[in-house]
């Protein structure tokens, strides 16, 4: 008599448990989370740098920290 679907399922999963497949996976999962966090941090820093560069090129005054109020800037241009 052949094993049923559920007997084979039990044997398969118990075999995986014996091999520690779920434990390996848990470790890999943790490492993957750390790697993902590092990747996200790098992307965020890169985005911030690109944003800063583009702001500096569009508004040079603000990049130096010497932004003038709009009214003063208008008087100067007159």
């Amino acid at each position: 008599m052949s094993d049923s679907f559920f007997d084979r399922l039990e044997a398969e999963l118990a075999g995986r448990a014996r091999q520690g497949a779920h434990l390996d996976r848990a470790g890999r999962s943790g490492r993957r989370r750390v790697a993902s966090l590092v990747r996200r941090s790098v992307v965020m820093v890169a985005l911030a740098a690109v944003l800063a560069v583009s702001l500096a090129s569009e508004f040079p005054g603000t990049a130096t920290g010497r932004a003038l109020p709009a009214a003063t800037a208008m008087h100067q241009s007159l």
Binding site: S2, F5, F6, E12, R16, A21
Partner: peptide, 17 residues
């Protein structure tokens, strides 16, 4: 998939179970 478990075929006899 994460466990690397082999797929298990469902047979007609399993229906009763």
């Amino acid at each position: 998939q994460r466990l690397g478990a082999a797929p298990i075929a469902f047979e007609d006899e399993d229906l009763t179970l």
